[in-house]
């Protein structure tokens, strides 16, 4: 039996995340991935998907060939990684919106206060970062 593929991910908040193949799970035994299909947008536009990957090939005894097994395992692990990264992106996105929201609020408040203070005179403007 050849070695199974694995994947690792690390970032400051997640030091070591491992992705592994579970040979008993059906998702590591197909070449049709959940996240590697056509875009939803394209399917909605009426696209007929004729670009599916070919199915895995089996030996006469029913076993998957080495390359087919590798393709299947990769499809499964790719799904895991895609789902994990999408989730991470969503978290990052919501953090960013919150951050920009509060920043924007502070900027508007500053501007109003500045005007209320009579700050619309000829004082030279300086860029603040």
């Amino acid at each position: 039996m050849s070695k199974l593929i694995t994947g690792t991910y690390s970032s400051p908040d997640i030091p070591n995340k491992t992705f592994q193949v579970n040979c008993n799970d059906a998702k590591y035994l197909t070449t049709n991935g959940k996240t590697t299909g056509s875009s939803e947008y394209v399917l909605k536009a009426g696209q007929i998907d004729r670009d599916r990957p070919s199915g895995p090939r089996r030996l006469p005894d029913g076993q998957l060939t080495y390359l087919s097994q590798l393709r299947c395992n990769l499809t499964g692990i790719q799904d895991d990684i895609n789902e994990f990264l999408t989730e991470r992106m969503q978290i990052a996105k919501s953090k960013k919106t919150k951050l920009t929201d509060t920043k924007e609020e502070a900027r508007i408040n500053d501007e109003i206060n500045h005007l209320l203070d009579g700050g619309d005179d000829d004082t030279e403007e300086t860029d603040t970062v």
Binding site: G37, S38, S39, V42, Q47, D51, P53, S54
Partner: peptide, 24 residues
């Protein structure tokens, strides 16, 4: 990689087409 009328080809789906057809 052909798309339905009124649609252009998107990078992701075009890449998928090439990936799945290249070996064949």
């Amino acid at each position: 990689y052909v798309t339905p009328p009124g649609e252009g080809f998107l990078p992701r789906d075009t890449a998928r087409h090439h990936k799945n057809w290249c070996v064949r």
